[in-house]
């Protein structure tokens, strides 16, 4: 299934892009992050990040569906 991945902050710098589409054959955000971490050498562990699916904060174990967007969010540092 096709998943749109959005990257912010450190993750965007490491990935060298702000979004991409990936074809995956599993539904786990943790597995997806594991694969992305390997590909782009992200420094954060999955548990340090919040997950937004279709622009809504979501539980880490939420199952992804075809056409979803997902963003892995580092700790916020606004202000």
């Amino acid at each position: 299934m096709q998943i749109q991945i959005l990257y912010f902050a450190q993750l965007a710098d490491h990935a060298g892009k702000t979004e991409e589409s990936r074809d995956i054959d599993y539904s786990s955000p943790a597995q997806l992050y594991h694969d992305l971490k390997e590909a782009y050498h992200f420094s954060h562990e999955f548990t340090q990040l919040q997950v937004a699916i279709n622009h809504q904060l979501s539980a880490h174990e939420t199952a992804l569906k075809d056409g979803d967007s997902i963003a892995f969010l580092p700790p916020m540092t606004g202000g």
Partner: peptide, 22 residues
Amino acid sequence: HRLPIWKKEVYTDGSEAWIESN
């Protein structure tokens, strides 16, 4: 702590770093 905004500092020597936490 909760608004999805992130800041990167650029220093006067030209180096830069994302702030990891408030």
